[in-house]
């Protein structure tokens, strides 16, 4: 248990075949994502809709196979070590929380049942009494009380926020080291978002669980994230410590993203940024109106080039490699270096 990262992705790509008859056309949902997640830290992944955040997360959680690349968990290349199905050991260490709490809980099962299953599967409880104790403990951890009453309910008898807490409790049941959270607050009412974010904070500091937190909302990324990665058209274009990245905004796309958010650096703006999703135009509307590039025919150069105010000749020719900006901060942009 050194400072080696908990999880590392190397050149992770995902292409979906689309079209009739298996399709010759391919959607490049994620292209060559490389990053690492440190123990007990929150890595935020931000990007606009369709940029490949969910696909990246599902690859990490081994819910979809990667087309290319490696996933190293504790230094072991899990895609090579366990071909096909993920092992139970992997499932125990890495858990997933989904975006829509209305579809992530089975409508025909009680909350208690849905928490008992992972306890049983991973051998954390065996007898009836242990199970009941385990379920109660999990519900208390996510601040759902009275625990016994909640456990007897069905998902449709809970509010969205309560359901999302149940989903978090289910992830905790395995006693994971890493939780992959896909926009866990985006479907929740604005008034209860903070509660869920604070819960994530608490789980990180008290239980030492690492998170990959996916969002399109910069304020919450900044609030919970230790480091952040910005994704555009399937590529991670900038990454580094949260304050540095959102403060310096090295990549032109990050600048656009930050300027488009109403007040991205204040957590109080959480609600406001939710409102802007409904279509209230941000300051950078002119640039925003340009469609992101087609993921089917990727341009040979930087995917952001045609929207980029700083675009140079080189940008259209090849994809910029990640340039180191110091302090763990990097950006894939020719503003910061050249390739010869």
């Amino acid at each position: 248990m050194s400072d080696a990262p908990l999880l590392e992705a190397r050149g992770l790509s995902k292409r979906f075949s689309v079209g009739l008859f298996g399709g010759s056309r391919q959607v490049h949902a994620v292209t060559e994502a490389s990053f690492s997640v440190d123990r007990g830290k929150v890595l935020a992944l931000v990007g606009e809709s369709g940029s490949g955040k969910t696909t990246t997360l599902r690859m990490l959680g081994r819910l979809v196979g990667a087309t290319e690349g490696e996933i190293l968990l504790d230094g072991v290349d899990v895609l090579k070590a366990e071909r096909g199905r993920a092992s139970l050991a992997f499932r125990r260490k890495v858990q997933v929380i989904f975006q829509d709490p209305f579809s992530s809980l089975n409508p025909v099962r009680t909350i208690g049942h849905c928490l008992e299953r992972p306890l049983l599967i991973h051998g954390h409880a065996r007898t009836e009494a242990e199970l009941r104790e385990g379920v109660r403990g999990l519900l208390e951890t996510v601040e759902l009380r009275p625990a016994d009453e909640i456990a007897a309910r069905y998902p449709h008898q809970l509010s969205g926020g309560q359901r999302q807490r149940v989903a978090i409790a289910r992830a905790l049941a395995a006693r994971p080291e890493l939780i992959l959270a896909d926009e866990p607050i985006s479907m929740l009412d604005v008034s209860i978002r903070m509660g869920v974010l604070n819960l994530i904070e608490r789980l990180k500091s008290e239980l030492g669980i690492a998170f990959v937190y996916v969002t399109h909302d910069l304020a919450s990324a900044r609030y919970v994230g230790d480091s952040v990665m910005v994704m555009y058209a399937g590529r991670i274009v900038e990454g580094g410590p949260c304050e540095t990245v959102l403060g310096e905004r090295a990549h032109p796309y990050t600048r656009l993203l930050v300027s488009a958010a109403p007040d991205p650096l204040k957590i109080a703006a959480l609600g406001a940024s939710a409102a802007s999703e409904q279509g209230a135009p941000g300051p950078a509307t002119a640039a925003r109106r340009v469609e992101p590039p087609s993921l089917i025919d990727l341009p040979p150069g930087c995917p952001f080039a045609e929207r980029c105010p700083e675009a140079m000749k080189a940008c259209a020719l090849s994809v910029p490699p990640p340039f180191d900006l110091g302090g763990g901060h990097w950006a894939r942009c020719f503003l910061y270096g050249r390739v010869d």
Binding site: V96, S103, S104, I121, A173
Partner: peptide, 24 residues
């Protein structure tokens, strides 16, 4: 998503088919 969630919890195919999908 509840099927993906069951998979992520480590449920096997048979249980996912008969205990998660079938009752629905």
């Amino acid at each position: 998503d509840f099927v993906a969630a069951a998979l992520a919890s480590g449920e096997g195919s048979r249980r996912i088919i008969f205990a998660e999908i079938l009752p629905n």
